[in-house]
Computed example of a mutant assay.
Amino acid sequence: MSARDLRVGLIGLGNMGLAMAINLQKHRAANGLSPISINNRTISKCAQVEELGAVARDTPGSVAANSDVVFLSLVNDAAVKDIVTQLLDSLKDDSSTERLLIADTTTVHPSTTQWVLEEISRRQSEYTRPVSFAQTPVWGAPPAAKAAMLVFVTSGEAEGVLGEIAVPAFARVAISCGTDQIKAARYKILGNFMIASVIESLGEAMAVAEEAGIGRELYFEFIKEVFPVPPVMGYALKMVADNGEASKTQVGFNVPGGMKDVGYAIDVAREAGMRLPIAELAYEHLQWVKDNGGEKWDWSSLAYALRKEHQK
């Protein structure tokens, strides 16, 4: 079956999931494809996508019953385990023999990916419908998601089909990790570590530039001319703002989320017999922000932590 013939669902309408669902539905409607099925813990969040033609379902199981591919866009590992469990439970009453592919775009620890694979294998005998899983993380902040400019990572046996569904509907490119879902989880985590290391380096440089009499604004001119790429520019602009205020109000990825991903990167390195010293330092600075009232701030606020640390 081609990607065009597949019924698609999406569970989880947070900042990323909502943008992905909107773009998926718009793309499918414009190309004469079936509407997507959607579900969210707060069902009222489905309204914006319903207006475009999507079908809101009461439960994750109902999404699965009406889909061949179900994308997950969830907040953390616990939510992924909960939704996967609900999906598998629902299959006991599903007499279909058409394969269900669960594609998780959430950033999770590799052990969670392993748990999902083992759980699907363990429970496959409970139902007649075959189930496959793919770890398919995405890179890009909410503005990139809204613009359908995400970087989509594929894995698993049906990675080609997943890439066709995602690009150009909600992503600009698909990068293949082959059939290895654990590799895809590690790949995403180390990609996020790279972003965290950029934020840490920017924060340190901005703090020193301020104290050395250069100033954040002048240092930003160097960033603009030498590193004119969206992630670097975006975080640098927030750091230029006075007293870290932009990091408090322009939240793309919050401090607890940053700590989770940086912590996972430290774990991946440890499992490989290595260390990520920059990640360890970034984690300490994010912890400081969280402990000092910044739990809801953007993770670029670690630059604010560096300036405050100097002022002690």
Rank of each mutant, 00 (worst) to 15 (best):
R4V: 05
V8N: 07
G9D: 07
R28Q: 11
G32P: 03
L33C: 01
I36F: 08
N39W: 14
T42N: 11
C46Q: 02
R57T: 00
G61C: 09
A65M: 10
N66Y: 05
S73V: 08
D82H: 13
Q86D: 09
Q86H: 07
L87N: 12
L88H: 10
S96I: 13
T97E: 14
L101E: 12
Q114C: 00
L117T: 09
E119H: 12
S125H: 14
V131G: 12
T136G: 11
V138A: 07
W139L: 15
A144L: 09
M149T: 15
V151T: 14
F152S: 10
T154I: 07
E159G: 09
G163P: 12
K183E: 02
A184E: 04
A184F: 07
R186F: 06
L190Q: 02
N192H: 03
N192E: 02
F193A: 05
F193H: 12
I199N: 13
E200V: 00
E204Q: 15
E204F: 03
A205K: 11
E210H: 11
E211W: 00
Y219K: 10
A236C: 11
D242E: 14
D242Q: 14
A246F: 10
G252M: 11
V255N: 02
G263I: 09
A265E: 04
D267C: 02
R270F: 08
G273T: 09
G273K: 06
E284T: 13
D291H: 02
R307C: 07
R307H: 12
K312R: 11
